Amino acid sequence: MDMATGEFNSSENAGAGDPRPLAIEARGLVKRFDQTLAVDGVDIAIPEGAIYGVLGPNGAGKTTTLRMLLGIIDPDAGYRRILGADDPQDVARRIGYLPEERGLYPSMKSYEAIAFMGALRGVPLPEGRERAKQLLEEHGLGHAIDKQIRQLSKGMAQTVQLLGTLVHDPKLVVFDEPFSGLDAINQGKLEVLIRNLADKGTTVIFSTHVIHHAERLCEGVAIIAGGKVPYAGSVEVARDRIPAQVRLETRARDGRWRAALPDDARRVGDFWQFPLPTSGVEPLLKALIEGDAGILSLSIERAGLHDAFVAIAGEAAARDMVSQNAGEQA
């Protein structure tokens, strides 16, 4: 960003080698509520067509960050640009937003609820009704077109609200904890829908405290802990912060080959486990073979996004996320 003019320099935010323009760019977002600092200097850059996750435990500042990006609340400091606009309200009709707090009029029929949500984004009601019926058919809810919201199961009602978020064909879709409350089948359906949106060129950003959704779907993530973002970038780079782990099983329990193992190698049952040496696996293999270790198995396991999250945000934040997810599953 040019601090003299307040203008963004997209090249410094887009990521090395990524030719795509940015759908979302924000620098130094700060938000206070009374004396509480909820968000403290958030920087995010999301290319068009990307699937991007905002990870952190409940209370970390995820929802506040999303609402600042969307212009629902204004930051106390910092800059943001959404779909090329400095004021998010200027492009509101090109954005779909599913808040964490779900809410539909219970007496409305399913297709009318979707059409109503489309009308709020500029879709004429007759067109919205036709789109709604088509979406309900496409997503396996053709039998529920004329049912009132109060007659639907919780999962079906959530699907209706999700379709209402998409009925106006937005270029940017923002989901706040979209997987919360969904069973495994509907979570899988939502993952497919998110991938399909990205395949069409739609930018998708979602917040979550369940890391495996982000690991499966996202090319980039922002990790939020205590209102700060200690990491924002690609999932691959985050995982590469943790050395790959070698898992080795040998026939021989001891021998001169043991000298080839790193000092931090530890025995876990029948296996040796240690970080992949910087010299690579080839010198290790040579020493094991020449030392008659009798290799039964050797695997190199790359660190997962959970391991990266722990290293970046700390064990306390990771424990909070695990406990919150366990509470939802109970």
Rank of each mutant, 00 (worst) to 15 (best):
V30D: 01
L284T: 14
L193Y: 04
I211R: 03
L217A: 04
D146V: 02
I185T: 08
L193H: 02
A16C: 12
G15C: 05
P57G: 05
D169V: 13
A50M: 08
G155Q: 08
A92S: 14
G15D: 08
R93K: 15
F33C: 05
G188H: 05
L136C: 08
A184N: 08
L285D: 15
H139S: 03
L172P: 15
V42N: 04
A225P: 05
A238R: 07
A317L: 02
Q187D: 07
L248H: 08
V322C: 03
A293G: 09
S107H: 01
Y111A: 09
A252Q: 12
Q148L: 06
V30N: 01
L261A: 07
I185N: 11
V30C: 02
L162I: 10
Y105K: 02
F309V: 00
L261F: 02
R258K: 09
E328A: 03
A308P: 00
S234H: 02
A259P: 09
G201I: 12
P19F: 03
A92N: 08
G49E: 11
D2R: 10
D34R: 10
G280Q: 13
F175T: 07
I46V: 15
T202V: 15
K200G: 13
G142L: 10
S110G: 09
G201S: 10
P170Y: 05
S297M: 00
G201Y: 11
A38H: 05
L69H: 14
G227I: 05
A23Y: 13
G103Y: 04
G280H: 13
P99C: 05
N13K: 14
G78H: 06
H139E: 08
A132K: 14
A198F: 14
